[in-house]
Design a protein around this nucleic acid. Structure first.
Lengths: 164, 164
DNA sequence: AGTCAGTTGACACCCAGTTGCAACTACTGT
DNA sequence: ACAGTAGTTGCAACTGGGTGTCAACTGACT
């Protein structure tokens, strides 16, 4: 049984299915004794609340609205911090817009990203089959899974219908 | 039912399961009317026969042994050509060694790459559950899938056993 | 309030990948 | 076999995401 979370153009991100939750990043950082600087508060807040998939440059832009002296390097360092703690996921979105990476707060359920080569839309796809596959992979290979990334590129339903 | 293809350190690539085949890249290119230059013959031959996952720099190195005037740009352009024709897959292998990309000739069955953060080994994992998941995603979302990339990062069986 | 390890901003740097262009060449039609 | 030409190559300069270094700063302890 799968829940297709909807589609939105231009790297937009759909509202989450009610069964999907995002734990508070700040809380997790505090719990782990990570020093909370004003810059981290700003950056983590933006990632936590974002409805879109953010790349480093966009994240910097948004952060500068709250702290105009914040630096590129700090953005990258904070991203690395959150990755190290397993609090965010890194995505390529099939390089629809170049080599940059996108980030999103980790949710309680892994999901797949389907990127449309025509319209640039991203569909987030949650499925129990995906969970089962993960479990099967771990069991059969003896691998301890820490990160999973499932990305699909192709043409979405809408573009298939509207293009010759 | 899954076939775990084995494990090899340092981005090594295991021998393929007998049910997995790699169609001839050159033949496909000729069929499609692509111009066959000496450089392309060299590069495509290397990719076709490689037992490892190749990045652009390694591919250039190997190519230079056959044609010492071959250029970086030609390597990137050939990779783009093969990608455009859907003949190779692009991998990140969880950025185990930086941001570069790896390439492999597309096989008749999609497979997952499991990257060990400790030893750098890559396990290739083929599973009918994966095929089923793909079919389910396509059906439920109306998405026409052209490329799929499933990568997993974690700790392999061997490293879990040998490390404190 | 004082301490100091961890963090920041600034800036130079790295490196994978791209681009523009003149010279070259694989294929086509003859 | 040969010439014409569209597609390809090598070169060199460039782009852009990301990193390293280091002096100055600051959050979280006592």
């Amino acid at each position: 049984m799968a829940t297709q979370v909807a589609k939105e153009s231009q790297l937009g991100r759909s509202k989450q299915d009610s069964s999907i939750t995002r734990p508070s990043l700040m809380k997790k950082l505090v719990e782990r004794g990570v020093r909370i600087t004003s810059q981290r508060r700003v950056l983590v807040g933006i990632i936590q609340d974002s409805e879109r998939h953010l790349d480093a440059a966009k994240l910097l832009d948004l952060a500068k609205k709250q702290d105009r002296y914040i630096d590129r390097a700090t953005v990258y360092r904070t991203i690395a911090l959150l990755k190290r703690h397993g609090l965010i996921d890194e995505l390529d979105l099939m390089h629809l817009e170049g080599e940059k990476h996108y980030y999103e707060a980790k949710t309680n359920r892994d999901h797949c990203h389907m990127a449309c080569f025509r319209c640039g839309g991203i569909i987030e796809y949650v499925s129990s089959s995906f969970e089962k596959l993960k479990a099967e992979m771990a069991r059969q290979s003896g691998f301890q899974i820490r990160v999973v990334r499932l990305e699909v590129g192709g043409v979405c339903k809408h573009c298939r219908a509207t293009t010759a």
